[in-house]
């Protein structure tokens, strides 16, 4: 399978996604020797006319499989899952806040500021601590 053919498959796959108003920025795709892989979060563009439904995703998957030159299709979405050949929406997998395993000072837990959730109760629960009373400043 030539590299050019794989790029043509990518192009055909993008057309199929665009026809369904899928946000290309939230997915990635690649084809290697006719094996087409699409992954990421499968969502329509902001303000697209109708929501993504299981029947649309099933139809889209079938169309992707039919692209000329596709030997195998691998779809791996964070928010849709295939079960018994049918696609269904699933709640997006939520990653826990990232915590540094190597502690600079014994007993001190450093948390990546970018990952700190607005609701700190999650952190307290993960540490097995009771939630503190609300701050008087809050």
């Amino acid at each position: 399978m030539s590299r050019l053919r794989d790029i043509d498959i990518n192009c055909a796959a993008r057309r199929i996604l665009v026809r369904r108003w899928i946000d290309l920025g939230k997915t990635s795709l690649r084809t290697t020797n006719g094996v087409l892989t699409i992954y990421g979060t499968l969502e329509k563009l902001l303000h697209a006319a109708s929501p993504l439904t299981p029947s649309i995703v099933n139809e889209m998957a079938a169309e992707l499989r039919r692209i000329s030159g596709v030997r195998r299709l691998s779809l791996n979405f964070t928010n849709w899952a295939e079960c018994d050949g049918k696609w269904n929406f699933i709640a997006e997998k939520k990653e826990p806040p990232i915590m540094r395993k190597e502690l600079p000072t014994p007993g001190v837990l450093e948390i990546d500021e970018a990952e700190v959730p607005k609701d700190m109760s999650e952190i307290y629960e993960s540490l097995g601590l009771p939630n503190p009373p609300p701050s008087p400043d809050a």
């Binding site: 192009c11 057309r15 665009v18 946000d23 939230k26």
Partner: peptide
């Protein structure tokens, strides 16, 4: 743009 240029399949988005 989406229904013309993007539909050619040679345009992508990186956030």
């Amino acid at each position: 743009l989406w229904t013309n240029e993007f539909l050619q399949g040679t345009t992508d988005i990186l956030y």
